[in-house]
Amino acid sequence: MADTPTQTELWNGPAGHAWVTAQRILDEMFNGFATHLAQTVPTNANWRVLDVGCGTGDTTLTLARRLGPGGRATGIDLSAPMIEVARQRAVDAALPVEFIAADAGQPPLPAASIDHIVSRFGVMFFDNPVQAFTRLRETTRQGGTLHAVVWRSAADNPFMTTAERAAASLLPLPPRVPDGPGQFAFADADKVRWILESASWSEVAITPLDMSCEIARDDLRTYLSLLGPVGTALRNETLDAAEREHILDTLEAAFSPFIVGDRVQFTAACWVIKGANP
């Protein structure tokens, strides 16, 4: 069995390129979160905001539009392919946004240089979360704040595990590692509180957020073929075209409970994590 790839290898390899390919679909799916996070900063605020795990930049660009000319939005992500796309999007939008291809757990930014940190599903992938949140806190000014959105449990998010369950007998899928970096790594609110408090964040609050999400029915097959453990297996396995289409047909059928007309709709069950640098 091949060694498990590191986060750097994963997000600079096929997984990162898959997210680039699916950028439009994911932006539509998670549009509500970009709006939610942008609303955590005042309109036209003279704030310096850091978007952790910014991906292809949708949330960062939304923040920049809300901040206006007096503020500054910076996105950081481990994935060079996604950062390349984000930079081009900033150029196309004529927004003065900085994008950094680096480990957000070791941000190459001066101490106390950030007013506010946001993250949409970007903080669950740290190999050493206490160390990472300590460095992020040190990057914020005194009184600086954190507002991150993470997934609750797999059981709370059946949409996100439907493909794995449907493909379990069709593809060899790696088991999820409950305590390792990954989508549901922050499902346990008590664990998350311990991480932040161990990193010396104060005023820690963890509250549920249920967000309605949707994509076009016509985009479901592309989404399934690219993302998650099933997307990885479909890329890595030696499958002929007929086998691949059969698997995708099976997966699409499994998502019938989420299909409403020409849309695919689900509720994302998340935690909102807040903290302050004392």
Rank of each mutant, 00 (worst) to 15 (best):
A187S: 13
F184G: 01
V230N: 02
T222G: 12
A168G: 05
E164P: 00
A205L: 12
V192G: 03
D188P: 10
L220P: 11
A167C: 08
L224E: 11
S212K: 10
W201V: 01
R165L: 12
V177S: 13
A168V: 10
S200I: 00
R193M: 00
A216K: 14
A185E: 04
P158S: 07
D218N: 13
T161L: 03
D219S: 14
E164I: 03
S198T: 12
A163V: 10
S202N: 12
A185T: 07
A205S: 14
T207Y: 01
A187V: 03
D190F: 00
V192L: 03
P208E: 11
L209I: 09
G180L: 08
L170C: 08
E197V: 09
R176M: 10
C213Q: 10
A216F: 02
E214P: 00
S198E: 12
A189E: 12
S202A: 13
T222N: 10
P172F: 09
A187M: 01
Y223R: 02
S202H: 14
R221M: 04
L170W: 08
M211K: 00
C213I: 06
D219F: 01
L227A: 06
L220F: 06
L224Q: 08
C213N: 12
T207F: 01
I195P: 05
P229Y: 07
P174A: 13
P172D: 10
A166M: 07
G182D: 06
P172E: 04
